[in-house]
Every structure is written in structure tokens, then in C-alpha cells.
Amino acid sequence: MTEPVTMMAATTRLDYVFTAGVAQSKNLHGLEEGKFIGQRCPKCKKVYTLSRGSCPVDGLPTDEIVELPNTGTVTTYCVVNVPFAGQSIEIPYICAQILLDGANLSFMGLIQEIPIDQIRMGLRVEAVWVEPDELGPTMASVKYFRPSGEPDAEFDSYKEYL
């Protein structure tokens, strides 16, 4: 008599077509051109980067497009020392929240070209983009951020974004 089956693997995989939407498409096309695109709320006037098209405070469409500069401030950071599956960057490395100048929402970015013991809140940084022929509608168009050489930002200038 054959052995009874006591276990089976039932694998699951689902594939999706992602709809970026009108707002995010503008952001993604901006990245394709090596630019950060923000969107302004008509009511509170805040500028959101990588927006899904609405102001999360007011629930209104952020229709006004704002081109944002290449520079920003590290509001907070983390030094990654823990290896994990699928890690693509050599540890230790710095992951930081970056507030672009003129934006009211920070996003996470990789910081390079600075010794890890010199990373600090308020550090001024600039984006380093991939080669022009490698630009695409993805955040991978930004290789990393590096110190811009400007003096550190005052705490008061970013304290609302921690």
C-alpha cells in the first residue's frame, strides 16, 4: 500500500495591472524626464510629492502641478545594519526621509557619498539621477541623494515633517 498524502503545497500567485491614475502618471512622467513633480492642494496650499491625486487633509483634487527642485533636507534617517533577503545595497547604508524644497511631504530615499557616522537631521542633499538614457517612469530613476554641500537646515524649517 502506498503512503497516504499528508501534505501538499498549494502555491498562489496573482498578477495585476496597476493603474497609476492621472496624478501619479504626472509624477512618473516627471521622473522619466529627471524631474520631481509635486501637486498643490487648492485649499491648504500644501505641495505633495508622489501624490495619488488628492490632499489627504482636505480630500480635494490636487490639480495644480508644481515642478520641484533637485534639492532637499534630511528630516530623519536610519542606518541599516541588518542583512535581509533581497538586499541590493551593501550594509551599512543610510535610509532617510527627504523633504524636497517647496514640498510639504517627505519621502524615503537612499543617502550615499557620506560616511555613515556623519549623517544627521537637517543635512542638505541633492538627487543624483541615473544616466539620461536610463531614465524611466520609476523612482529607480533617482540613484540616490548625496550631500549638496550647503549648510545644514535649521530645525524649525523641517520640524513639522518628522
Binding site: V17, T19, A20, G21, V22, A23, Q24, R52, G53, S54, P61
Partner: peptide, 8 residues
Amino acid sequence: EDAHNEVE
């Protein structure tokens, strides 16, 4: 609906 995301 492939122009707008869920929020939109």
C-alpha cells in the same frame, strides 16, 4: 477604469 486610481 484605467485612467484613474481608486482615490481619483
